[in-house]
């Protein structure tokens, strides 16, 4: 019997159309690349079970449409995400510029709470590189994101990318839970003279009753 999942974390994967985000996710979850595949694989939504220091974690990995015409729809996908993996192609400077704009949008729409990781993808094409590694590393550091060198073709850096992300999200989740517990200790009931306002207008429609 598979172990009971204790935490489900939502990870959105963002990037320009040809940055390789779908190949990257499929490679990580299913261990395959684009060649020698017999059947079409569902890659827009995938899950991966991880054991992080004894905690059973499920990553729900949401692919997003990278085409410009769907740009305005992206917030629908990254609503309530715990982490975002922003993928760019090291041989395409435009995709790096686009990655930066995703970061801005994420920060605006989701807030500073979301964990970010920048994946410098297609490391197997290093000879065609147009984005220096130092540039993307410096950028990642400037926004507090982790920086990962990945290749969907060779599998380079993928395990590390997602496991590091899951560990960070779990750590954040545990810290938040501990704070909540601590607060509950000091506020056992409703305080006299306070009222509860339902946050109706800003509440995102879906309730996350089944995930963390």
């Amino acid at each position: 019997m598979p172990p009971v999942v204790q935490h489900t974390f939502k990870v959105v994967v963002l990037g320009e159309g040809h940055a390789g985000k779908t190949s990257l996710v499929v490679r990580y979850v299913q261990g395959t690349f684009n060649d020698a595949r017999k059947a079409t694989v569902q890659a827009s939504f995938l899950t991966k079970h991880l054991d992080i220091d004894g905690s059973q974690v499920e990553l729900a990995i949401w692919d997003t449409a990278g085409q410009e015409r769907y740009h305005s729809l992206a917030p629908i996908y990254f609503r309530d995400a715990h982490a975002a993996l922003i993928v760019f192609d090291i041989t395409d400077a435009d995709s790096f510029t686009r990655a930066k704009s995703w970061v801005k949008e994420l920060r605006t729409m989701v807030g500073p709470g979301i964990l970010l990781a920048i994946a410098a993808n297609k490391q197997d094409l290093d000879r065609d590189r147009t984005v220096p590694d130092a540039d993307s590393k410096a950028y990642a550091q400037s926004i507090g994101a982790s920086h990962l060198q990945t290749s969907a073709k060779t599998g380079l850096g993928l395990e590390e990318a997602f496991e590091e992300m899951a560990a960070r999200v779990l750590q954040q989740h545990n810290a938040a839970a501990a704070t909540q517990q601590q607060a509950a200790k000091y506020l056992p009931g409703r305080r006299q003279g306070t009222m509860r306002l339902a946050d109706e207008a800003t509440r995102p429609p879906p309730k996350r009753s089944a995930c963390c």
Partner: peptide
């Protein structure tokens, strides 16, 4: 869909 798995498959379908 108050019991929905909004981070998972159901959430993705609705999104």
């Amino acid at each position: 869909h108050v019991a929905g798995d909004w981070c998972g498959q159901a959430g993705f379908q609705v999104a």
